[in-house]
Simulated scan of single mutants.
Amino acid sequence: MPGRCAFCLAPTLDDRPWCRDCFETLPWNLAACPVCAEPQPVASQGRRCGTCLRRAPAFVRARVPLRYSEEVVWLVRRFKFRASPRAGMVLLALLEASLTEEARAWPQALVPVPLHASRARDRGFDQAEWLAKRLALRLRVPLHHGTRLRDTPSQRGLDRQQRRTNLRRGFSVVEPLPSRVVLLDDVMTTGATLEALALACLAAGAEEVEAWAIARTPLGGNMSQAW
């Protein structure tokens, strides 16, 4: 409803689609690895996670403001599986609200994580493309595209290494890219998909790649005891 919070229907905060209380209590991903954005215990805030210390990803950093839990799960599902434009606009606004001026000025191009053509036809909606079109206009940067070369099996239930194997050489980027490129997806799980696309972008001429998403799935189950 116009002028009402997307979460509780209370009056909104200024021109934002949320009220102050709901915004402040969202599951913000504050204590996260600065490289891959994996949620960390508060005591580890600002430190690289063990995985990134052992093997840094192809992208230089990830910016993922929220954890995929609580109200965020509800919002993402409405957007992804029901193609709700209201949910999409709220998610995009949350991502934008988290970006510093430095972050907004960094990218020279945006590349959404592509669906395979057959999956896009079945679903009838490409959530990353929808988000990237609007964000590229707001950041005033060009939108570039990659291609998913094969319709990989579902990533559900796979660990980080299995996901990397599943997606190996899974993307291609044909058009030349500028030096600084941002990849965009709605939810980041292990980072394997963004890693594979980052490698394709580097092969297409990018020198540095950042991974942006709206929410990050905590690895290893429930992180509630650590927060």
Rank of each mutant, 00 (worst) to 15 (best):
R169W: 02
H116V: 04
L92V: 05
P218W: 12
S98E: 09
L135F: 05
P2H: 14
L137W: 14
R134Q: 06
G157H: 12
R160I: 13
V42N: 01
T152Q: 10
D126Y: 10
P112T: 03
A103G: 04
A206G: 02
A97F: 09
T165C: 13
N222D: 15
A109H: 07
V209N: 00
V111Y: 13
L197A: 02
C5D: 04
V141P: 07
S84P: 02
V72S: 02
R54S: 13
A132F: 09
L202N: 09
D151L: 01
P65G: 08
P11V: 10
A109F: 12
V42M: 13
L66N: 00
A203C: 11
A203N: 13
V60E: 14
A93D: 12
R148H: 06
D185V: 15
R82K: 01
A203H: 10
P39R: 05
G46D: 06
A109Y: 08
E207Q: 12
D126G: 06
V64S: 04
R20F: 13
V181Y: 03
S98D: 07
G221H: 08
W74T: 09
R156H: 14
L131Q: 07
A203E: 15
V181Q: 02
A136W: 09
V113C: 11
P114D: 03
R138K: 14
R61Q: 12
N29S: 05
L131H: 08
P178R: 06
A117Q: 11
A103F: 07
M89Q: 13
E71A: 11
A196H: 01
V35D: 13
G191K: 10
G205S: 09
V35N: 11
P176Y: 12
P2R: 15
P11R: 07
R119C: 03
V72K: 03
R138V: 04
T100D: 02
A198C: 10
D151I: 07
R78L: 01
P27W: 03
A128I: 05
L194M: 12
L99G: 01
T189V: 06
L75D: 04
T190K: 04
D126R: 07
F23I: 08
L158T: 10
T51V: 15
E207I: 13
E70K: 10
R4Y: 11
V181G: 05
F81R: 01
A10W: 09
Q108M: 13
A198K: 03
R169K: 11
R63D: 12
R119A: 03
P114F: 08
C49R: 08
R47Q: 15
Q225Y: 15
A56S: 12
A226F: 15
